[in-house]
Computed example of a mutant assay.
Amino acid sequence: MSGRVLVVDDNRVIRQLIRVNLELEGFEVVTAADGAECLKVVHEVRPDVITLDVVMPRLDGLRTAARLRSDARTGRVPIAIISACTRHEVDTGVAAGVDAFLAKPFEPAELVRLVRRLVYGEDPPSMDGRHGAGRAESTRG
């Protein structure tokens, strides 16, 4: 079963980049252009993970995260901030209940790993069926 991801970013190109990379890995992706749109569609979409940019018009990512956390229906949905984060934004995000951070620009593989971890837990199977995709086997020679 694939997870559903709500991708929130005011930059259309970044939304599409995230969408394509996650859809290639089997995720269902719904997008929103800012925090206000996110809060409007989140209850219909019922995502397994929400990714938020920080700097957006109307309602920024950190305030959106705080509102999602304060709503009983979305309070437990994992939230990842995908942004060129400053230390202050990371600290504010942690205080708002954000689960993970990914700095822009990001590698698509990092994005996929992060979303998989948030949807499936700490040790998801990789696409080739092996467990512990993030851990290399020790080879001593």
Results as ranks from 00 to 15, higher is better:
residue 129 G to Q: 10
residue 37 E to D: 13
residue 81 I to M: 15
residue 47 P to M: 08
residue 83 S to Q: 05
residue 137 E to N: 09
residue 34 D to T: 09
residue 17 L to E: 08
residue 73 R to Q: 12
residue 54 V to I: 15
residue 73 R to C: 00
residue 42 V to L: 02
residue 71 D to W: 05
residue 50 I to K: 05
residue 77 V to L: 05
residue 109 A to H: 06
residue 32 A to V: 05
residue 40 K to L: 11
residue 110 E to M: 08
residue 24 L to W: 04
residue 84 A to K: 13
residue 90 V to G: 06
residue 34 D to V: 08
residue 99 D to W: 07
residue 116 R to Q: 15
residue 44 E to F: 00
residue 14 I to R: 00
residue 133 A to P: 00
residue 81 I to N: 08
residue 2 S to R: 06
residue 115 V to L: 07
residue 68 L to G: 08
residue 100 A to Y: 11
residue 126 S to G: 15
residue 84 A to F: 10
residue 97 G to F: 14
residue 16 Q to E: 15
residue 98 V to N: 10
residue 139 T to S: 11
residue 46 R to W: 00
residue 134 G to Y: 01
residue 18 I to S: 02
residue 106 F to P: 05
residue 65 A to E: 10
residue 50 I to W: 04
residue 11 N to P: 00
residue 99 D to Q: 13
residue 93 G to A: 13
residue 129 G to M: 09
residue 131 H to F: 12
residue 6 L to T: 07
residue 106 F to V: 07
residue 60 D to I: 01
residue 6 L to A: 08
residue 130 R to N: 08
residue 108 P to C: 03
residue 80 A to T: 08
residue 68 L to V: 10
residue 64 T to I: 11
residue 21 N to K: 01
residue 102 L to Y: 06
residue 45 V to H: 01
residue 1 M to C: 02
residue 84 A to Y: 06
residue 17 L to T: 14
residue 38 C to W: 03
residue 48 D to H: 15
residue 105 P to C: 08
residue 65 A to L: 08
residue 90 V to Y: 03
residue 118 L to P: 11
residue 36 A to V: 12
residue 30 V to Y: 01
residue 78 P to D: 14
residue 40 K to W: 02
residue 96 A to T: 13
residue 66 A to W: 01
residue 32 A to W: 03
residue 81 I to D: 07
residue 92 T to L: 15
residue 62 L to A: 09
residue 52 L to Y: 05
residue 129 G to V: 11
residue 56 M to D: 09
residue 97 G to V: 14
residue 58 R to D: 12
residue 57 P to Y: 02
residue 115 V to M: 08
residue 83 S to N: 05
residue 95 A to S: 15
residue 92 T to V: 13
residue 27 F to N: 10
residue 47 P to C: 07
residue 105 P to V: 09
